[in-house]
Amino acid sequence: MHLLVLGGTSFVGRAIVEEALRTGAEVTLFGRGRTGADLFREGTGATGVTRLIGDRDTGDYAALRDGHWDAVVDVSGYVPRHVGQAMDAIGDRCGRYLFISSHAVYRRSGVEPGSDEDTPRRTPVRDVHSTELLDKDTYGPAKVACEDDVLARYGTRATVVRPGKVAGPHDPSDTFTYWVRRAARGGRIALPADPAQPVQIIDSRDLAGLVVRLLTDDRPGVFHAVGPAEPTTLGGLIETCARVAGTEVEIVQVPPEAGARMFPLVRPNWPTQQRSSARARAAGLPATPLEVTAADVLAWDRERGEPPIHRGYPVQEEEALLARTAEGITAG
């Protein structure tokens, strides 16, 4: 299989390229060449990788005017303009076009836990000023528009994958890494949420495995990429991270403070964000145990020197909050 990956040198794209190479595919990467410039180079153990340089922001797709690919994976399409220009440049010179979307496409209310891929989506937004200034209000609707455009252009040659929260080595978001690192410190952990809140995260390598399997099988349709295979809660996730690190933790539920930052994996409206993975599992979605994901993220984080992360509570802030919580309990 000859695969064109739009993006492919950051977190999710990197995992997809690694999985594709593992299965013997030839990979062409298209991007600006700024992220992961040393990845997949000659002498790094990767073979069969070609790099093409272009820039979606400026509309530079000249590098894609020649060539034919069995499949395209669009990892970096966030706004309709980018996706449309990529499809215009590639045209019919690909077999299948797989678009990486998001669960942000779904409506925020009236959705039952365990919803499937046919759940009603939000209204697409195409206005340039809205869709290219992505925030919580425009990100999902822009992805809806991108999905619609891909399906309209390629029809049964189109595939859409909607990942949930993705975890694994090389994750730049710190979402899962915060809990891995915090649990490894052990002790009392402040949690501004109900520990019984269900959570869904998917290992980046499982997402990559699903993508490559869908392409290998030439399978159309829309698929949720969610995990882990065994249901877990936020408290259970933290305890799993502690067990992997060999520490003991005590989870202390604290009230959310007014104006507090969006906390990693805490979702007040979690029932509407629990998705069914049945369709993707039937199509070959792998199932890495949560313990393995946590162990691999812990090892990667330590190997990179545990740089500052910008999610969750800073150490001193958490200690002060735990102290105030203890005082309140004692006074009560």
Rank of each mutant, 00 (worst) to 15 (best):
V5N: 00
S10Y: 01
I16L: 03
V17Q: 01
E18Q: 07
R22D: 06
G24H: 09
G24C: 06
L29D: 00
R32V: 06
G36E: 06
G36T: 08
A37M: 05
G48C: 04
T50P: 02
T50C: 02
L52Y: 09
A62T: 15
R65Y: 02
V72S: 05
V73S: 00
S76H: 01
V79A: 09
V79F: 09
A86E: 04
G91H: 05
G91R: 07
R93P: 03
L98M: 01
I100G: 00
S101I: 02
H103G: 13
V105G: 04
R107V: 15
P113S: 15
S115Y: 11
D118H: 09
T119H: 05
V125H: 08
R126A: 10
D127I: 11
T131V: 15
L134T: 10
Y139H: 13
G140R: 09
K143A: 09
E147L: 04
D149R: 07
T156L: 03
A158Q: 04
V160N: 00
V166N: 00
V166H: 00
T175F: 03
T177C: 08
W179V: 06
V180I: 12
R181C: 09
R181D: 14
R181Y: 07
G187E: 07
R188T: 11
D194N: 13
D194V: 14
P198G: 12
Q200H: 08
I202W: 04
I202C: 06
V212I: 09
T216V: 07
R219I: 01
F223T: 02
A225Y: 02
G227M: 07
A229L: 07
E230I: 07
E230F: 04
P231A: 10
I251H: 05
I251P: 02
M262I: 02
M262G: 13
M262K: 13
L265E: 06
N269A: 14
P271H: 03
T272I: 12
S276R: 06
R279H: 15
G284N: 04
L285D: 06
V292A: 10
T293C: 12
A294G: 08
V297M: 09
P307T: 12
R311A: 05
P314A: 12
E317L: 12
A320E: 14
T325R: 10
T330E: 11
A331Y: 15
